[in-house]
């Protein structure tokens, strides 16, 4: 029974995730679900470096912003088709992550958290910077046009963008899953749990950490690209430090060091603030804070670990 769940569970989930929204969701709900996919990829990226590799980043909003801007600039300035911007955005973000990770990851502990936090705070200012506003559009940002479904498929553009994002998301999740369940994933976890032993086993720690960080930046950047296509707009003030903190919250609450955790985390950060907003402007922050601390004490493994426990109990019965 259990083996069947792990084998066919994901497949069933993908089919349901593709079919149900097309049948029942409104345009706005499809837009929300597209953002969930974008967030899930971003949280997954953060999870690779923070959950699996143990290097805390508080600045993944920056890579999300870079991904979004690469897509927006290419679509708006150079008329590149939306799908062709994704590989470019992936490469740019990976290089950016590599360059930032090199100095910040040489020392362990909190140095990466500090550097990435500083980056996250600086992002809106950097995006508004005069010398590049010919590309970025400065404070105004860039407006792009939502792509229509190709080949005269009977789909609205909301439906098409959702399906496209879902396909990209599934592909990237499969990649990440293979990555963490293989040799590289074991090395990442070893560096997190026993750096000295890992080094003694012949793992080049600094190189692995930097490459993991670059990979993680790439995932988050693709998330940003998908979000830009869905929102049809990028501007500096959508990429504040709050965004980076939101990804961090999603990662911890969804489940650190869990592939599925990224999905739960993304659902959480997309839908909970919407609900909490009805209470008061301050409510989302307060709820994030309380839930974050509560999870650290009661379930450090996040929603994923709670579900795992629950499934295990079901299997025993």
């Amino acid at each position: 029974m259990h083996a069947h769940i792990t084998r066919f569970g994901p497949l069933l989930f993908i089919v349901l995730a593709a079919v149900l929204p097309l049948a029942f969701a409104s345009g706005y709900q499809l837009f929300q679900l597209t953002l969930v996919v974008a967030y899930a990829l971003s949280v997954l990226g953060l999870n690779l470096v923070t959950g699996y590799n143990g290097q805390v980043s508080l600045g993944h909003g920056a890579f999300y912003a870079v991904g979004a801007y690469v897509t927006a600039i290419m679509m708006d300035r150079w008329d590149v088709p939306y799908w062709a911007t994704l590989p470019v955005s992936a490469v740019v973000c990976a290089v950016f992550g590599f360059l930032l990770g090199m100095p910040a990851l040489r020392l362990g502990g909190v140095y990466l958290a500090l550097t990435t936090f500083a980056l996250a705070v600086a992002v809106p200012q950097l995006l508004k910077y005069k010398l590049i506003d010919g590309w970025t559009g400065g404070v105004q940002g860039i407006t792009i046009i939502k792509p229509d479904a190709p080949y005269d498929l009977p789909l609205t553009s909301d439906q098409w963008v959702y399906l496209f994002s879902l396909a990209v998301g599934v592909l990237m999740f499969a990649l990440a899953s293979n990555l963490v369940h293989g040799r590289i994933g074991r090395a990442m976890v070893a560096i997190r749990d026993q750096p000295i032993a890992a080094e003694a086993m012949g793992i080049d720690i600094a190189r692995f950490k930097t490459l993991t960080f670059a990979t993680s930046a790439m995932f988050t950047g693709i998330g940003g690209s998908l979000a830009a296509i869905a929102v049809q707009f990028v501007s500096p003030d959508s990429f504040t430090v709050a965004l980076s903190v939101t990804f961090f919250v999603g990662m911890v609450i969804g489940g650190a060091a869990s592939i599925w955790g990224a999905v739960f985390g993304a659902l959480f950060i997309e839908f909970v603030p919407n609900i909490a907003d009805h209470l008061s402007k301050a409510a989302p922050g307060a709820i994030y804070g309380v839930i974050l601390i509560a999870f650290m004490f009661l379930a450090p493994g996040g929603i994923a670990s709670l579900l795992r426990r629950w499934f295990a109990r079901l299997a025993v019965k």
């Binding site: 601390i293 650290m296 450090p300």
Partner: peptide, 30 residues
């Protein structure tokens, strides 16, 4: 808050600090 987490990994302490940051900020706004 912090004493019980003394032996916990970095992620837990950063999580709690970020949680407090969000909470204090919203409480003040509220």
């Amino acid at each position: 808050v912090l004493r019980p987490l003394e032996k916990a990994p970095v992620l837990a302490s950063v999580g709690v600090f970020i949680g407090m940051l969000l909470m204090f900020n919203s409480v003040a706004g509220w």
